[in-house]
Amino acid sequence: MNARANFLAILAAVAVLAVLPSSLSTYSVYVLCSWMVFSIAAMGLNLTLGFAGQVSLAQAAFMGIGAYTTALMTMAGIPWPLAMIAAAVECFLIGLVLGYPALRVQHHFLAFVTLAFNALVFLVLRNEEWLTGGTYGVVGIPRPSVLGFSTNQQTGFYYVVFGFFLVLSAVLYGILRSPWGRAFQALRENPIRANSLGVDIRRMTLLAFAIGSAYGGIAGGLLGQLVQFIDPNSFTLTISLKVLLMVIVGGAGYFFGPYLGALLVILMPEFLRFTEGYYLMLYALLVIVLMISCPKGLLGIVDRIKLSIKLRQNPSATAWEQGK
């Protein structure tokens, strides 16, 4: 692909996102913020799922852990950058502890363990009222102040989220470009060969899961500050499935898949609002149709189109491309 064109396109997109809030309503800015927050969570899951090939159904649980950690720490007077770091580290460690035994048994078992974990986290958040406020949740979470500027206005906070969004995207890109990340892609394409080349599959997968979980934690921390209220219902299994939907609809394993998937999942109710009570039915139907027509997600469609153009231009040299 043309690297320079890609780079310019990304630069243009960043520039648009940087100036966009000034011309949007408060609601639209809020929606953009939640798009970026869920993109971060989906990016993390994409690392686990798209690159390491493991299904995690606990991304919402990690968001919850991150959100409660950040909220309770900042409300106790601890500076918010520290609270966010604590949330990320905590989720990373829990990811290690949870993933280590689960990945020992391989296959789809990480999915089952994380599913149970998510349901358990919900119960703890709801039942341990002394710590989490129980079913009533935590209200009045402070928005961070940056260099003395308060971000209580939606636009101010937008730039905080935007900053995290950019930095975490860049970090993920760096990870995937590092030797370690390349080993990952080798692993995804051919586990047996990667193993024979001395790649320790289990350790790599575990690390990917833990990093993905830390992304979930940061996303949760931001979500708490965005909504300024958290309760256990925001971190149920349903939300984990929603994040999974984002990754798959966008295209698992594609760098930009989560951004596109999150955009679609968050904006779809907007576009279908005119159908009144039928919008969820239509939404479900669209997802089914999309899965059937393109199981690799939206970016899978783009790939397929590119491939067919290439085939038309140069029908001979493509067996390898198709195999990929």
Binding site: T26, Y27, S28, Y30, S34, Y136, G137, I230, D231, N233
Partner: peptide
């Protein structure tokens, strides 16, 4: 029945120029 969505919806209602808001029911 989701707190973040409900906040977004109230914001949207206000942006749309609502005179009065009715609902929701769930206390959280």
């Amino acid at each position: 029945t989701d707190a973040p969505t409900s906040r977004a919806m109230v914001q949207k209602a206000i942006d749309d120029g609502a005179y009065v808001i009715l609902g929701p029911i769930y206390s959280g």
